[in-house]
């Protein structure tokens, strides 16, 4: 019978907290990067130029339909060989995760934009707004409000996906957990603690998203 002993974790508390900090920072950075990439790709998807549409579609499908783990490894090991771009594990991870997240954000943002009544852009045009101005002042503010729950859901997934950066030895929560586990010979306790840390951050967020979704439903 296995005897659980969570007390050993106390000695690793700073290590794990540090890891948690890296995970949170990584999520924040890749959510921002992903949103920028996703917004660009979504606008390209809706462009009247076929080349832009094709490029955005290709980008999105490549990153949506391959495993993040492979993307991470590919960015770190293969890209330097092919393109001659040397990257630190952190840069490679940021790049891969931002592109991965961006490809999902792109579809959400595109969907949000096309869900806005065409009468809105007609009214904006009739008032003399250029398409870019109408997008910025009229369409996007309405679309973003509508897609916020979906974007937050995707960001929650993104938070969990950051755990994969440990394969490139980025010292996130999972990576530090591994170190603690090997060091203490207590993997079950360590990984359980890691899971609890993820849960405590994500659970309140999912509750918040659910509440927003409900309010959005009522507003409609």
């Amino acid at each position: 019978m296995y005897e659980w002993d969570f007390s050993i974790l106390w000695g690793y508390r700073w290590l794990l907290l540090q890891g948690l900090g890296v995970t949170v920072a990584f999520t924040a950075a890749t959510v921002v990067g992903g949103l920028a990439i996703g917004m660009t790709a979504a606008i390209c998807l809706l462009s009247r130029f076929r080349i832009l549409r094709g490029f955005a579609l290709g980008f999105i499908e490549v990153f949506r339909c391959t495993p993040v783990l492979v993307q991470l490894i590919w960015c770190y090991y293969a890209l330097p060989m092919i393109a001659g771009i040397e990257m630190t594990p952190i840069t490679a991870s940021l790049l891969a995760l931002s592109c991965y997240g961006g490809s999902f954000y792109a579809e959400i943002i595109r969907g949000g934009i096309v869900s806005i009544d065409p009468g809105q852009s007609e009214a904006a045009s009739a008032l003399g707004m250029t398409p870019a101005l109408a997008m910025r002042r009229i369409i996007l503010p309405q679309a973003l409000r509508r897609m916020l729950p979906a974007l937050m859901n995707q960001s929650i997934l993104q938070f969990k996906n950051t755990s994969l950066v440990s394969v490139l030895a980025v010292p996130d929560l999972v990576y530090q957990g591994q170190i603690a586990a090997h060091d203490s010979f207590r993997p079950l306790e360590t990984y359980s603690a890691v899971a609890v840390a993820y849960f405590m951050i994500l659970f309140p967020l999912t509750l918040y998203v659910r509440r927003r979704e409900r309010r959005l439903g009522e507003a409609r």
Binding site: L127, G128, M129, L133
Partner: peptide, 30 residues
Amino acid sequence: RTRTGMVFQSFNLFPHMSVLGNVIEAPIHV
């Protein structure tokens, strides 16, 4: 299009702006 004003069957007011916001939007930004 700034020379012509248009009113639509389905109003097409901007729902995320107040009544005043709707009216001042184009004069300010266009």
